[in-house]
Structures are given as C-alpha cells and as structure tokens.
C-alpha cells in the first residue's frame, strides 16, 4: 500500500503534473498568481475540493448510473466549492474579494473533473482521495512557482516580505496578464526539456483532457 501511495504522489505531483503534462486547469491557475498569498489560498481550496470530490465520486461510483455521472460529478464538485466559498467569505473576507470569481471557477477547473472521471470512477475511495490530494498538490506547486516568479520580479517581495531591497526596479509587466502567460510558457518549456515525458503517465491520463 505504501508503495502505491508513493506512486500516486510521484505521478500526480511531478511526472504527470496536471498543469505541465496535461495542460489542464490553467484557466484559473493564471489569474490568481500575481501574489503568492492568493495562490496559496487557491491551492489549498483546490486540494480540498479535488480530494473530497474524488472521495465522494469514488464512494458513490457503484450507485451512479453511467449516463448521468457527469452531472453527478459536477454537483458533488459544486457542493464542495460552495463550502470553500462560504468559509473564505466568513473567515477571510479580504482574500475572498481578492480571489473574486475565481473561487467559483474552481468548479470548471478541468483537473477536478478529469481526476473524478479518470481515476475516482475506477478506484476505491481511499486511493482516490490520495490521488486528489496529489493532483491538487501538483497544481498548487505550479501555482506557487509562477506566483513566486511574478511576485518576486513584479513587487520585489515574497509573501509580502520585501527581499530584493528598496532599490529594486519593479517589472510591472510581471504583475499584468502577459507576465503570467510568459512565465507559464517558459515553465512548460523547461519541464519538457528537463523532465522527459513519462509514457505510463500519458496512458493513465488519456481521456482526462477536454
């Protein structure tokens, strides 16, 4: 079992990373990456939703009729996203307004439904839960990396703490939308160069994209 857990994590976080390898879920991944704090909040929310909806989908997989499973999955995911939204609004109002509509957009994040469809539909609940955490973690890592580059170059700070000193000339472009596109494009390039594609991972993720 421990070996399987290790496999799940190494696939989800590195070898088959949802953003780099499967180009999934970048809609919401880019918009919140101008500050690391926003990305962290988004990442935690996504891990919560992915893991719990995978768990629920997997637990209900024997009772869900095949032809309406998509609708059931969307409803399960929406329910968890609503929880995230309410918790953010209640306890972190500033963060909630900074993330704006992107909390709700977690529902349309292809990663979650991709994992439900590809993995949770065929595997037992516990493994699906871990798979959800692994993929959420892989996604969050990418978010944090992009946010790190953008915040460091754009504001000269990391998590709001100034690290590059007052004389740092801010790269304003990094805070604006083009910066996100450039950083993600270059990151994908670097991943393709340094982490050779994993054939087994490709097979497991086939059909997950939309």
């Amino acid at each position: 079992m421990s070996r399987k857990i290790k496999d799940i994590f190494s696939l989800g976080v590195i070898k088959d990373n949802p953003v780099f390898r499967q180009i999934l879920g970048i809609c919401s991944s880019l918009a919140v990456t101008n500050l690391m704090l926003n990305s962290l909040a988004m990442g935690i929310g996504l891990i919560f939703v992915t893991s719990l909806s995978s768990l629920t989908v997997s637990a209900l997989r024997r009772y869900t009729p095949g032809h309406i499973r998509m609708m059931v999955q969307v409803l399960i995911i929406s329910a968890y996203v609503i929880i995230v939204d309410i918790v953010l609004k209640a306890y972190f109002p500033a963060l909630s307004s900074a993330l704006g509509p992107y909390v709700g957009l977690i529902i349309t994040n292809c990663i979650i439904m991709g994992r439900c469809e590809v993995y949770a539909q065929k595997n037992p609940p516990l493994a699906s839960f871990l798979d959800g955490i692994a993929n959420g973690l892989g996604y969050s890592l990418v978010l944090m990396t992009i946010a790190f580059v953008r915040e460091l170059l754009g504001f000269g700070t990391v998590f709001g703490v100034n690290v590059l000193g007052p004389s740092w000339v801010r790269w304003v472009i990094m805070i604006m939308p083009p910066g996100a596109f450039f950083v993600l494009g270059l990151l994908i390039w670097a991943t393709n160069l340094f982490l050779p594609a994993n054939e087994a991972g490709k097979a497991s993720s086939a059909g997950g994209g939309r």
Binding site: I23, P178, G179, F181, F182, L184, G185, L186, I188, W189
Partner: peptide, 9 residues
C-alpha cells in the same frame, strides 16, 4: 502549449 502561451502573452 509552450509557444502558444508565449504568443498569447
């Protein structure tokens, strides 16, 4: 994807 994102940028 890489070049597409850079063009988009």
């Amino acid at each position: 994807a890489g070049i597409t994102l850079i063009i988009t940028g």
